[in-house]
Every structure is written in C-alpha cells, then in structure tokens.
C-alpha cells in the first residue's frame, strides 16, 4: 500500500510540473512571441493588398498629372502671358526634379564585395553602406552632374540616402544591393571625378566593393514621383517684420 501511495504522489507531482510548463508555454505563445505560419501568411496578403493599392494610387497620380498638363497646354494657347508662365513653370520643374530628363552621363553600378571575409575582419566593411553611396553622389555633384537618380529614385533637395538594416532607403523606398546611380553631366568629367587617385572608387576597391562606371550618350532619368509639400516652411517675404 505504501508503495502504491508514493507512486500516486510522484505521478501527481509530475503532472503538476507538466501543467505548469504547458500553461507557461501557452502564455508565451499567446503573447504573440512566436510568429506562426498563419500569421505570416496573413501579413503577406495584407502587404500584397497594400502594394496593389499603392500601385493604383500611383497610376491615379500619373493620370491626374497628365490632366494638369493638358490643362496647362490648352491654357498656354490662349495668351502670351500664360505661355511664358508655362515655360517658366517647366524650367522650375526641371530644376526641382519633377520632369524626366535625358542627356549624356554615366551609369555607376555599386555592388557588395564578393571577396571572402578574412577571419577576424568586420564583414560590414565588405558591404555597400549609405556613406559610400553618399560619397559617390557627392563626388558626382561636385563634378557638375545636373540630375542624379539612385535605382531610378530621383535625388532632389529633400532626398535621403540612409541605411536601414541591410537595405538603403532613398525617397522612403527601400533598396538592396546592387545600387545603380545614374547621373547626367559631362561623362568624361564625371568618370574622372570618381576615379581620382585616392578617391571614392579607389578607397572602396580596398574592400573589394565593385564599382562599375559606364559612360553613355543617352541616359534617361525619371522624375521624382513623391509628393512635394512643405508643412512647416513658409517663404520669408523681403522687408516683412518678424
């Protein structure tokens, strides 16, 4: 009898421990710690839906822009004043990066290093970072590039180039390597500026980061397709008291 009793105690103890473990695990899972396949699928469909929505909205934007253009065209036919105003607007749009541009220039392709990382070396050094891209863009600007795009995102006054995890964000759009920088300007000057001894390409080559420069007579750079609107900045009128 005594032996039977101790058996029951041990079974009860074991079941108790098992129950505590089960409920603890259940609590962890319920907290959403573990991402289940179902949840991931749900999120994926959500993402897909939002992406198609975004596509539709982008299409709408381009349609509306075409409409505006048509209005401007018809208005400019009416009088000389509106015609000059329109040409003025076109000029500022070009400068602001709101029109597609074409011209001679260079296409710079930057890719992560394919060299094996030697043991003890920081593998980060062999990847393309925002700083590298910024240096290249900066060098292109210094060499007189008139329009620059990164992976078809036009770089305008408010564009950012920033590392987010393993990707780079430009105009709030994420990109992974390889990065294609297009610049319109004098192709020879642009290439020479990048290939300066001790310059950008030279220093990146130390880590095996591939920088491929291709000169071209005709490069098309897309316009900036985001929304340009100042929420805080207001123009300062000359002579106005603060």
């Amino acid at each position: 009898m005594k032996k039977g009793f101790s058996i029951y105690i041990s079974i009860a103890l074991v079941s108790l421990v098992l129950g505590i473990m089960l409920s603890t695990q259940f609590k962890i899972v319920k907290k959403g710690g573990v991402v289940t396949a179902q949840r991931a699928e749900e999120l994926a469909t959500q993402l897909k839906q939002l992406q198609s929505e975004k596509e539709a909205l982008l299409k709408q934007i381009s349609e509306l822009e075409a409409k505006i253009n048509a209005y401007e065209d018809s208005a400019s036919k009416n009088s000389v004043i509106t015609q000059t105003l329109k040409s003025e607007v076109e000029k500022y749009k070009e400068l602001a990066g709101l029109t597609d541009l074409q011209g001679p220039g260079v296409i710079v392709t930057v890719n992560d290093s394919k060299q094996p990382v030697p043991p003890g070396q920081d593998p980060n050094l062999f990847l393309v970072h925002d700083e590298d891209l910024l240096r290249i863009v900066n060098e292109l600007r210094a060499a007189g590039a008139e329009a620059i795009s990164l992976n078809d995102q036009r770089l305008i006054a408010t564009s950012e180039i920033r590392c987010v995890g393993p990707t780079v964000v430009v105009n709030s759009v994420r990109f992974a390597a390889p990065y294609v920088i297009k610049a319109i300007g004098d192709p020879d000057t642009l290439e020479a500026a990048l290939k300066l001894k001790g310059g950008v390409v030279d220093s990146l080559a130390t880590w095996g980061i591939e920088v491929n420069i291709k000169k071209s007579d005709k490069i098309v750079i897309k316009k900036y397709d985001g929304v340009l609107k100042f929420r805080y900045a207001k123009p300062l009128v000359e002579g106005e008291k603060k």
């Binding site: 108790l16 098992l18 505590i20 089960l22």
Partner: peptide
C-alpha cells in the same frame, strides 16, 4: 494534478 498545474501556471 494536470488541471491544478495549469491553474497554477496561469
């Protein structure tokens, strides 16, 4: 005892 354990854990 399993039920008891579950309750304790919760």
């Amino acid at each position: 005892s399993l039920l008891l354990g579950l309750i304790i854990g919760f």
